[in-house]
Every structure is written in structure tokens, then in C-alpha cells.
Simulated scan of single mutants.
Amino acid sequence: MRITNFALLLLMSGLSGPLLAATTAEQIRNATLEFLDNFASEQAKEGYTVSFEPGSIDNRLALAECEKPLSVEFSGDPWKSTSPSMLVACEGTRPWRMFVTASVSIHGPALVAARPLTRGKRITGDLLRRQSVEVNASRRGVITTTDQAIGMQVRRGINAGSLITPDMLSAPNAVERGDHVIITAKTGGFSVRSRGKALANASVGEQVLVENLRSSRTIKANVVAPGHVEIPM
């Protein structure tokens, strides 16, 4: 007697218990949609509009059933890519992980040049204006608040209306070669000050070689403010 494949499947399931349940492509898609919807809601509170669409998932996909809700997180930065990937994972007794791509567009305010900016120009408020842009279309990032730009120096020419990205600006020198500076040496709650001369240009947070004018010794110090350097003891 011939046994059909379907009958054989029923026979096998009867002998070995019920067929194992599976996580379907639809369940994975629903989890990514919920995650992206929550992301969009969070960004809306900050003034950004997010539109999204998860990538296609093969409907034939059948992974082990997950007794816990699927976890979803970005594995790529959605602020620097319009096609970030998401990691979908099951943390149950039969764990698995997979990646799903998505199309994500984030629109919101960013700073653009109000007029042409030449190299070396110090940024002031009147040189900037806000404009709604697709923030994540720039892989170099964007500048969204004026306090991130004001006081910075233009590294290369910027055309009027161009989006200002962090790599276009640099911190101005807080000390320049030949400047007289105040050297502070600190240890615990005790500090000693002396006068020195900078031997190179440096910004706040950078190290610079300084000549102590009293001892003529050359020392390495941290720039903490314009005209001020510090040596930890």
C-alpha cells in the first residue's frame, strides 16, 4: 500500500508527539514594526519625524519558537544611515539571532550655513540658520544645536545653504606657539602657579609642550582654558 507524504507526516507526528512550533516571518516583521514605531515616537518628542519600512523577510523562514517576546535593537546607527540593520533575537531556551534591514528616514532641524564661510572663520550665531533636513542621509553626522558650533573654527570653505557637519569644524587654538601661559601644578588640594611659554599650538583638552620661564625646563601640560595649562602631580 502506498503512503502519501502527507499521511507519512501525520504518522510520524503521531509517533513522536506534536510538531515543533516555529517563529514565523510575520512574527519577526511585527516585532521590528513595533520597535521602529517606538523609536519614531521617542524621536517625535524631540521634534524629529521618522518614517520607516522593515526590509523583506522570506516567508518560508521558520525559526525555533520563542517563549519570550522577541528583542529588537539597532545594530547600525540609524542617525548615520537610511538603511540601518536591526538585530532580532530570541533569548528563550532555544535562542537564535538574525539581522533585518530597514529603510529609515529621520527629518528634523539641523544647522546650515547662512552665508559662505571661509576657512579659519570663527563661527558666530549670525552665520548659522536652522533648516529641516533628512538628518540620517549624512553619514558624517549633523549639528543640531548652536552651542555645538558657536566658537568653533571652519576647517574648509562652506557654501551658503550647505549642511554643517562636525568634520567641517574644529576647536580653535586656546594657546598658540609663543604665547605666555599660566602653568598650574596640582596635587590633592594644593596647587602652585608659574609662568610659561607655549612651544606649539593646541586646543582645550590637548597636550602642549611648555617652557617654564623660571626654571627653563620644558614640560608637557594639558590645555584647560585659553592661556592656561595644567600639570597633574
Results as ranks from 00 to 15, higher is better:
197 K>Y: 02
199 L>E: 15
171 A>M: 11
194 S>D: 06
173 N>F: 06
180 H>K: 11
173 N>G: 11
181 V>P: 02
193 R>S: 14
190 F>V: 09
194 S>C: 04
187 T>D: 12
185 A>E: 12
175 V>Q: 04
174 A>M: 00
174 A>R: 00
176 E>G: 04
186 K>S: 14
196 G>D: 12
190 F>R: 06
201 N>D: 10
190 F>M: 04
182 I>N: 15
192 V>N: 11
176 E>I: 12
193 R>D: 07
176 E>W: 08
198 A>H: 06
181 V>M: 15
185 A>K: 13
193 R>M: 07
194 S>W: 00
199 L>R: 11
199 L>S: 12
177 R>L: 10
198 A>N: 03
178 G>S: 08
191 S>N: 05
173 N>E: 11
178 G>F: 08
201 N>T: 00
173 N>L: 04
200 A>P: 12
197 K>F: 02
194 S>N: 02
189 G>L: 01
197 K>Q: 15
176 E>A: 05
183 I>N: 07
173 N>S: 15
181 V>A: 14
183 I>M: 12
189 G>H: 02
181 V>T: 11
190 F>N: 05
175 V>K: 08
199 L>T: 09
197 K>P: 00
182 I>R: 15
198 A>E: 07
174 A>F: 00
174 A>I: 00
181 V>R: 10
171 A>V: 05
172 P>N: 03
184 T>W: 05
187 T>C: 10
172 P>F: 00
198 A>S: 10
195 R>H: 06
189 G>V: 02
199 L>Y: 07
184 T>Y: 03
185 A>W: 06
175 V>R: 09
201 N>E: 01
175 V>F: 10
171 A>T: 08
193 R>H: 13
177 R>W: 05
186 K>R: 15
176 E>H: 07
196 G>P: 03
180 H>G: 07
188 G>L: 03
197 K>W: 02
196 G>I: 14
196 G>Q: 13
191 S>W: 11
173 N>A: 14
177 R>Y: 08
183 I>Q: 09
184 T>H: 01
199 L>W: 10
173 N>Q: 12
181 V>Y: 05
200 A>M: 09
198 A>F: 05
194 S>P: 00
201 N>G: 03
172 P>Q: 01
200 A>G: 14
178 G>E: 12
183 I>S: 09
192 V>L: 06
181 V>L: 13
171 A>G: 08
193 R>Q: 14
172 P>V: 01
194 S>V: 01
172 P>C: 01
175 V>T: 09
182 I>Q: 15
174 A>D: 04
198 A>V: 04
182 I>P: 03
175 V>P: 13
181 V>F: 03
175 V>E: 03
191 S>R: 02
183 I>C: 08
192 V>G: 04
196 G>H: 12
195 R>N: 13
171 A>Q: 12
171 A>S: 14
172 P>S: 04
190 F>Q: 09
178 G>H: 13
195 R>I: 04
200 A>Y: 07
172 P>K: 03
188 G>W: 03
192 V>K: 05
187 T>Q: 15
184 T>I: 11
197 K>V: 15
172 P>Y: 01
194 S>Q: 01
174 A>T: 00
201 N>A: 04
186 K>I: 08
199 L>K: 13
195 R>P: 04
179 D>M: 06
188 G>M: 06
180 H>V: 15
184 T>E: 13
171 A>H: 05
